[in-house]
Each structure stands twice: as structure tokens, then as C-alpha cells.
Design a protein around this nucleic acid. Structure first.
Length: 222
DNA sequence: GGCCAGGACACCA
DNA sequence: TGGTGTCATGGC
């Protein structure tokens, strides 16, 4: 079976199992960008609490974050953890927006994928995954988000690039999945859902995701 | 009380 | 280039 066919089978299986239609579809571009930073190494629940605090205090605006005292910003986003680091990253992000075309988020997101990626990665605290979250979900450009769930799940299926750097993973996916924004968004969301549901106790169960019922008796054992 | 969650970075060998 | 420690909160 080719990698392309296998990836399509995984996608089809997951699409039948999970509904991710509400995954970052109703949020504003700024909510997505800020959310992508806040969710780093934490759960979406915690990131959401922090995001809500920014919204309810009227601070989820580029200019508001820019002029907000760093200590207050840290306090607002504290529930998401790593609040000192993330506050600095948010400050760096809004500075980047200010320096972009028109000084607006729309201007920044209008850059082509490569330039947008380079710009985002220039901000301390924004790495590959966060940059791709922003490119895919906020800028609506086809750049696959290779998180640790994707890597772990694909590896279980024998799908692995030679040399497992982030960009090699991404190239592997780009070469074998239709480069479509909605499909990339859906596939990534489905992989996260599967990763969150996975059975952690039976590591030898490798291929059950393509079956409607896991051979171990545990649904979605990964 | 320990482990883990939708990372990123600095440092070191 | 790859491994490791650090940043930190909250749920289970």
C-alpha cells in the first residue's frame, strides 16, 4: 500500500469516527493566532480560559495587547501555564503585526505561505507547529500542522520520513495528501481527537484504527 | 502527589 | 543533529 493510499484510509476512518466541524471554524483570525500561542503544551480547555479572560476584559485586540502591561497580560493568561513565556510571545506577535503591511493582522496573513512562515518564526516563542496553526487556520493556507499526535500515529502505521525533523514530516504529508486547506484542517483536527482518545495501555496495538472495533476490545486503541 | 497536556528554546555532547 | 532541562498551570 502506498503512503498516499494509507493516509487517505486513515483520514476516511477518522472522518467516520469523529465530528470536528466546529474546530476553529467560528473564531476570529486573532482568536486563532492568540489561541495557537496559548495552547502550547497545555490543553485547549486551559487555553480557552485564558483566551476568555482576554476577551471579557476587552484585551483581545492587537493594540490592546500591545499597550497592556506585561504583568497584567501575564495574569490574564496565567491559566494556560508558561504565562511569562507566552506573554512575551504575544507581545512579539503583536509587534510583528504592527510591522506588517498596513500594520494589520489581515496584512500579515495576506503574505504568501513561505514569507508568512518566516515572519512568524522570527517571533521568539513561535515555532514550526504554532506557525503552521496560524497559517492553516487563520490565514487559510495549506500548511499541514505536524504535532506530536500526527507523528506518533503515522509512525505506528510505518509512515515516517528519513530524518524526523518537523519540515521532513511536513514534506511527507504535503507530498501524499491533497493540498487542500479544509482537508488539512480536518485531518489535523481528526488526528488530535484520535490522539486524545488513544488507549495508552496497549502499545502493541498498531493497526486497529482502520477497523471499526479495535481487536483488543478498546475503541481507537493507539 | 505524580503525570500529562494540541511547544519552544537554550545548552551541550 | 539529537538529547535534555526548563518554563508553569490545572485536571485527573
Amino acid at each position: 500500500m502506498t503512503t498516499r493510499v494509507l493516509l487517505q484510509q486513515i483520514f476516511n476512518y477518522l472522518k467516520n469516527e469523529y465530528d470536528v466541524s466546529d474546530w476553529w471554524r467560528n473564531e476570529s483570525a486573532l482568536e486563532i493566532c492568540v489561541g495557537a500561542i496559548l495552547v502550547q503544551n497545555t490543553t485547549w480547555r486551559q487555553a480557552h480560559v485564558a483566551l476568555k479572560q482576554l476577551i471579557t476584559t476587552g484585551n483581545l485586540e492587537i493594540n490592546e495587547i500591545k499597550k497592556l502591561d506585561i504583568l497584567i497580560l501575564q495574569k490574564l493568561i496565567k491559566p494556560s501555564g508558561f504565562y511569562r513565556t507566552k506573554a512575551n510571545t504575544l507581545k512579539g506577535f503583536v509587534d510583528l503585526v504592527s510591522q506588517s503591511k498596513d500594520g494589520t493582522l489581515k496584512g500579515l496573513l495576506s503574505l504568501d505561505s513561505e514569507n508568512l512562515r518566516v515572519s512568524l518564526l522570527s517571533v521568539k516563542g513561535i515555532g514550526n507547529e504554532t506557525a503552521d496553526d496560524i497559517i492553516l487556520y487563520a490565514a487559510h493556507k495549506p500548511s499541514f500542522v505536524v504535532d506530536k499526535y500526527s507523528q506518533r500515529i503515522f509512525t505506528r502505521y510505518g509512515i515516517q520520513p528519513t530524518g524526523s525533523t518537523y519540515l521532513k514530516w511536513q514534506t511527507l504529508i504535503h507530498d501524499n495528501v491533497d493540498k487542500d486547506v479544509l482537508k488539512f484542517q480536518e485531518f489535523h483536527a481528526l488526528l488530535v481527537r484520535l490522539g486524545q482518545d488513544r488507549c495508552k495501555t496497549i502499545p502493541e496495538c498498531v493497526d486497529c484504527c482502520l477497523k471499526s472495533v479495535c481487536k483488543t476490545g478498546l475503541k481507537n486503541c493507539m
